[in-house]
Design a binder for these strands. Structure first.
Lengths: 214, 214
DNA sequence: GTCTATATCTAGATAGAC
DNA sequence: GTCTATCTAGATATAGAC
């Protein structure tokens, strides 16, 4: 019991510090200090700093996995799409340090690189599936190349909205406006391809949340 | 003359290494070694490693500046837009290390942070101007909120296409296909808002380049 | 499991001769 | 301007007592 507590403590402390200061600027001493344990104790529970990052990533992955298992029949309503994006963005925000230094982390940690690439692949697939669903429902009108490029655009926005938002408002991830704007951007990248009445529905929903963030 | 040569040598060597290995993984010793000079000599020409980064960024900025001075009357033809994007993406590719570790660099180097934020602001403005131009020409049909969100989406793509491309193909910045796809993504995010015949013109151009990269 | 003390290593940066 | 030699700081990680 006590065993688990310290390990958890290290993880939650690390996550907080990584998110706040950026993973490269947080040292193991810093973590130990903040968690009120000794550096030696930290290394009793984790082999290395990278190990902490990997463990945090695993936690993220476990919770994120269900959110990217999207068939082509799940997200046909604007509200469903919004809600799914909301859940996924919320979770990414909780682990935002991962997305702030993505290139660096993947370059440094091969395990993370593999896992992240797999995740991105599945995320792209789920974006593609969502578009397919709208297509089958006769709601969207789009040729296959455009569909692929759109899925890529969505994936890009899904992957980099966090550092992008922080560029303009470094501490802005605390409130939810950055998140809301990011979701709206994704939705509004799809709406131009839609037919009415769905086009208006999706657009209005995006505007509604932009005005009154959930 | 000899003075200038060594300084330039350090800069070009640094740029190459930064682009290849990522700025955080390149040490000053590494640079000196590759440039066949001593570490001490490097520090005769530059106060610090950050100084090298800043100088490289200045060079980038000097060349990039003209490319973001875009009025609302400049880019009305698909070819013009494509060409402008091509020049700008090409240059960013030359200095891609800046865009790979953006969050880190701006967090570490206040001067770079300020300059980069200014640049992004102007880039967003120029995206907005381009859309305004199309609007005045009666080619695009878009309300003002959607226009703002679209400008943001474009800016996001303009800023993160490099690390995004590298996620899928780590050494893929050598050939131009990543760049071509990135430009096509931007163009194709605008086309759904266009009226024919421009809609078809823009779309066809994007597809054409995707099939036969310039 | 936890601590203190310390080893190791590396990177950035400086001093002083030539 | 350039070199060799070296300093310093800070970070990861380990050893060994409790």
């Amino acid at each position: 019991m006590a065993k688990r507590n310290t390990k958890e403590l290290i993880l939650t402390t690390s996550l907080e510090l990584f998110n706040q200061f950026g993973e490269p600027h947080v040292t193991t001493n810093h973590i130990a200090d903040e968690a009120d344990i000794s550096p030696g104790n930290l290394y009793y529970h984790f082999r290395s700093k990278d190990d902490i990052v990997i463990e945090l990533f695993k936690r993220f992955l476990t919770r994120f996995q269900p959110l990217v298992e999207i068939s082509d029949q799940m997200l046909l309503q604007a509200e469903d799409l919004w809600f799914q994006l909301h859940l996924s963005f919320e979770l990414k925000g909780e682990f935002r340090f991962l997305y702030r230094n993505l290139s660096d982390l993947t370059a440094r940690i091969p395990d993370l690189d593999r896992a992240m690439r797999g995740l991105l692949k599945r995320e792209r697939q789920s974006a593609w599936n969502s578009l397919s669903g709208l297509e089958k429902a006769g709601v969207i009108n789009i040729d296959s190349r455009q569909k692929e490029m759109l899925a890529d655009s969505i994936l890009l926005a899904l992957t980099y909205w966090i550092p992008f938002s922080e560029l303009f408002d470094p501490n802005g991830m605390e409130d939810s406006s950055a998140q809301t704007r990011a979701i709206a951007r994704v939705l509004l990248s799809v709406t131009p391809h839609l037919q009415d009445p769905e086009k208006t529905q999706f657009t209005d929903l995006a505007y509604q949340y932009l005005s009154h963030p959930a």
